[in-house]
Computed example of a mutant assay.
Amino acid sequence: MIFASQQQGRFVQAVGRFESAVREQEPDRAEHAFQEMGRGYQDAGPQEVAQAAPRLAALLPEVPPGPRGTIAVLVGACVESGADPGPCAPHIFVELAETLAAAGEFAERWEETGGGDFPDPESGEVDPGVFERVGPEAALAWLTLPQWEMASVAMLSHPAVRIALDGSLRARLLRGVRAVAEASGHEFKCLTYALLVLDDEPLVVLHRPSGTGYRLRMSGIGDNFQLHTLLADLLVGGGHVPGRAPSPQEVAVCRDAPGQVHTVGSFNLVTPGGEWVWNEGTPTDIPVVDGVRLLVLDPPPYERGWPAGRFFPNMTGDLVLERVLAEEETRRLLAGCAPAK
């Protein structure tokens, strides 16, 4: 038992040595402690990761830019292992915002100095000329951005973090990642989609063939594939509209169960203006009409299948039917909707 206790304390001890080395600006000691942290994390128990995560997150501004993203990934790993993301997320998001800004500068300088294909930030191989061409700070921001994406998604997988995230900061992060993606051609889709996730969001759905309407509420839904399956469960599986109902397993993996399972679509998702709402998009693609997102369901024009599941495996999804709309209300809303284009 004493040996087990020593094993369990190794990670936190290494974190303490890393903190000390970073604050005393001793890179050799910091590198050695970092290696110890990597080994210690493998055996760390819940109490250790809970202690380590907020300490490492708070240390981020003092960690040199090169290894800073790696420490952020370690914080994300601790959160995925059960550490509280609340104290960690603000530090991650502040650093993410600064990294996105510097990555934007990288894109500008890259274009100004001849353009061409951007270096792959996930290849693990970096031409030293990249640093000379755009400057070390901008280059490091670009090259470590996938690490900040991983760490941020780990935070955003928790509803409390998403709800607490300041709206102006969320908008700033979205502008930053979209600008970098547009300039570079690299999607950073996971980060973008995680920032777009809605919580406690009302949704009105009109089923055009039956002339019925429903008010629902959604949380933690990463993409419209997931939304589609959950809609079919509530409306078809609930006996409200005809069609194919997904199996309990298909529904479970879209809520909180692990894995994926094949499913087939039940509807065609359409905006009130008649444009298709693609399954590949997110619920934010559904337009807001009179203060609430409004979606129209038409029969599927062709059979389409996909692996049912969650875009973010660590994010729990939820869709709740609050009430069936009155016939008059549904008729009025449908009258303002265009046919599918």
Rank of each mutant, 00 (worst) to 15 (best):
F312M: 12
A245Q: 03
L295A: 04
M1T: 12
L227H: 00
H91A: 12
V288P: 02
E105L: 10
G38T: 04
W306H: 14
V49M: 08
M155L: 10
H32E: 10
A44C: 07
A194I: 01
L169S: 14
A21Y: 01
E24F: 03
F34C: 07
A50S: 15
F225G: 08
G176R: 04
G40H: 09
P146Q: 14
G124Y: 14
T271W: 01
T284P: 03
Q6K: 07
V49P: 08
G176C: 11
P67M: 08
T271I: 02
A107E: 14
F188G: 01
G309E: 11
R23V: 00
L195P: 03
D290A: 11
P339S: 14
G86V: 12
Q35W: 12
L143P: 14
Q6V: 13
R55Q: 12
D256G: 14
S266I: 02
P248G: 08
V292C: 07
Y302C: 03
L169V: 12
Q249S: 05
G317R: 01
P67V: 03
K189S: 08
M218C: 09
V63T: 01
R17D: 10
H228I: 04
D233I: 03
L269T: 01
L60P: 07
V251C: 06
A141G: 15
T330L: 03
G305N: 01
A50I: 09
H186L: 15
N279R: 02
Y41P: 07
P246I: 00
E275M: 07
A181W: 06
P61G: 13
H91Y: 11
R10K: 05
V205G: 00
G265D: 05
G336P: 03
R68Y: 06
R208F: 03
V236G: 03
K341H: 12
E112C: 07
M155R: 03
L325N: 06
F312R: 07
I71E: 13
T263S: 11
V241P: 00
G45K: 03
P87V: 06
N268H: 06
H262C: 02
